[in-house]
């Protein structure tokens, strides 16, 4: 496939740093769109604020760059008023689970027919490396220079518990798996979340050398420390310390928002 069919060439170069994983995730999204043969006019790509949220500016879809954390609420309005629009939201860990946490759990609760791709780099990259809801306890950031006192969210388990139809986690290193999970999400009705761990050498790696200082070291860390969920289920918590659990967390056939609301419309018309 030719990526240039989907990119706004005149908007290059992009803002992402050397070694950032975001471009790898974007390519997975584009490969999947190409594979499914979706019409570009019928795709809305929506984001909030942050490094990952600059993605819409680079792609040739209907693109909407909203306020911090609010992308899912805008996407909800788009999807409800134009259900045939393929509605994809891209978000970072801070955008989706800190300032946008409420929209995230409620989009999952409603099982709104939206695909959410979270670029999780465990840090606020664009603002210079402050700790995020997924920065592990004890790790370093510009606002946790003596070690992060907070406990991190497990985004995939949060989405699963909140009611999403489909949830999977991959890493930038495992791009083939990312392709597969994004395809599963795009083919499925309801709220589908694909969390992709994306290295941020500039703001995270530099301060937390345990995961590698530069991009290729961080990718190697992902390769060596990822554990498929099937195997992880048989392991003890202490064995899973500093490991990345990847795979399909949930894939369930439950009614999405529209199945319920179409019933509401039927009942309203009988009155």
């Amino acid at each position: 496939m030719d990526y240039l069919n989907y990119l706004r060439k005149d908007k290059m170069p992009h803002i992402w740093c050397d070694g950032c994983g975001h471009g790898i995730v974007l390519k997975s999204i584009l490969r999947t769109v190409d594979k499914l043969g979706w019409d570009k006019n019928e795709i809305a790509l929506i984001s909030g604020i942050g490094c990952s949220s600059r993605t819409p500016g680079y792609v040739d879809f209907n693109t909407l760059h909203t306020t911090h954390g609010r992308a899912l609420s805008f996407a909800t309005g788009i999807k409800i008023s134009k259900p045939k629009m393929h509605t994809i939201v891209v978000s970072g860990d801070g955008d989706a689970t800190a300032i946008g946490g409420n929209h995230f759990i409620h989009a999952a609760r409603r099982n709104m027919d939206i695909n959410l791709i979270i670029f999780n780099n465990n840090i606020y990259g664009m603002t210079g490396g402050q700790c995020s809801p997924t920065t592990p306890t004890g790790k370093f950031a510009s606002t946790s220079q003596f070690g992060n006192p907070d406990s991190p969210f497990d985004i995939s388990r949060l989405a699963e518990a909140a009611g999403a139809s489909f949830v999977a986690r991959s890493t930038a290193y495992h791009f083939a798996k990312t392709d597969k999970y994004i395809e599963m999400a795009f083919r499925k009705k309801g709220f589908c979340v694909v969390e992709v761990l994306s290295p941020c050498p500039t703001a995270y790696g530099r301060r937390n050398k345990s995961t590698g200082k530069v991009g290729h070291e961080m990718l190697k860390d992902q390769k060596e420390n990822s554990v498929p969920i099937e195997r992880a289920r048989k392991m003890k918590p202490e064995e899973l310390k500093d490991k990345y659990i990847t795979g399909v967390f949930i894939d369930r056939d439950v009614p999405d928002y529209f199945e319920h609301y179409n019933e509401v419309k039927k009942r309203a018309k009988l009155k």
């Binding site: 909407l64 306020t67 805008f74 909800t76 309005g77 134009k82 409420n102 929209h103 409620h106």
Partner: peptide, 23 residues
């Protein structure tokens, strides 16, 4: 379509999204 959103901020976002597709 009527939707009761999770908060006021989300409600404002949703109406902007909906208007952007022409409703």
């Amino acid at each position: 379509n009527f939707i009761q959103m999770e908060d006021e901020i989300g409600a404002m976002g949703a109406v902007i999204g909906s208007s952007l597709v022409g409703v």
